[in-house]
Design a protein around this nucleic acid. Structure first.
Length: 290
DNA sequence: CTATCTGTTCTGAC
DNA sequence: TGTCAGAACAGATA
């Protein structure tokens, strides 16, 4: 699912959309995806929206917060009053009758499993095709304590020196596994690991102990670069990811290697290769990455 | 039709 | 406590 840039894009959207609004009701259509007593958050106002790794934290009045994990195919889509939904439908039809991939026809749809109603009539839809994602009611204090998560790539804590320590702690792991392990670094998933390693000119199969310090420096810069590109274009929508207004991100148009198997590398004359590493599709260029 | 893919992460077997 | 297949689930693609 969404990785850091996608989740952060959603967070920013939610921050603008729902802060200050009060939860008037929660409709749970698929109980296994919602953990907690929903009545305990009814009437509560949204104070803030945070992100930790690939999770979204909806900070509420009172002791409880909402924790959301979108996993592979989760979506959070916010809609204002129904009149606006009608306008969207009309707009799509007058556009020529072709269903635009940028907008959902109607909400809720078959993948909508949880719906939050706000007191002003607006709604937040939690959709998830594969039902891997979930929403939990969590105590804010407990949330701060029990995190097995590594540093955030955009935090001051995440220095090149810190990255070197992380890599040194797993000398036998391949570098891609190190990058995607959430307990070591937060927020990097399959796409941005491949992209970061391309920018850093490091093969994903290289083992921690074999990464030289100047490569660590490059990798540090490259992680930030890859994630920033994702953020700049509103996340990548190769699959089901959408922003909170239902529109798709455009970061996939800027990928260097991810999903570019068989195509020419942008940096040399080689063809982008794809292998299976740590059980995941892994893309790289043998010409550029060593 | 069958096999294999997919942005995640947890569990259980060795 | 390392590694890996498999699981959770629903498609799309070749």
């Amino acid at each position: 699912m969404p990785e850091l840039p996608e989740v952060e894009t959603i967070r920013r959207g939610l921050q603008k959309a729902i802060v200050g609004r009060s939860i008037a009701g929660v409709e749970v259509r698929v109980p296994k995806l919602f953990h907690g007593e929903k009545n305990s958050i009814i009437g509560k106002k949204v104070l803030n929206v945070d992100r930790r790794a690939k999770q979204i934290i909806v900070n509420l009045e009172g002791p409880d917060d909402l924790l959301v994990h979108l996993k592979m195919t989760g979506q959070l889509i916010y809609r204002e009053l129904r009149i606006k939904n009608c306008e969207l439908r009309i707009g799509k039809q007058t556009a020529g009758g072709h269903p635009s991939k940028d907008w959902f026809d109607e909400l809720p749809n078959a993948t909508t499993h949880i719906i939050f109603d706000f007191s002003d009539g607006s709604k937040l839809f939690f959709n998830d095709l594969r039902k891997f994602g979930w929403i939990k009611i969590v105590n804010s204090e407990e949330l701060k304590v029990n995190s097995d998560l590594g540093p955030e790539p955009f935090s001051e804590e995440f220095t090149a020196k810190k990255l070197a320590e992380i890599i040194a702690s797993k000398p036998k792991w391949n570098i891609k596994k190190i990058l995607t392990d959430q307990s070591l670094i937060s927020g990097i998933g399959n796409i941005y690991a491949d992209e970061s390693l391309f920018y850093a000119k490091i093969l994903p199969t290289r083992v921690g102990s074999m990464i030289k310090y100047d490569e660590v420096l490059r990798l540090h810069t490259s992680i930030i670069k890859a994630l920033n590109i994702g953020l700049k274009y509103g996340g990548s929508s190769e699959n089901t990811y959408v922003q909170i207004d239902g529109s798709r991100g455009k970061a996939q148009e800027h990928f260097q290697v991810y999903s570019r198997e068989g195509q020419k590398c942008f940096g040399c004359d080689n063809i982008v290769k794809k292998i299976r590493l740590n059980g995941r599709g892994t893309h790289f260029c043998e010409g550029c990455q060593k």
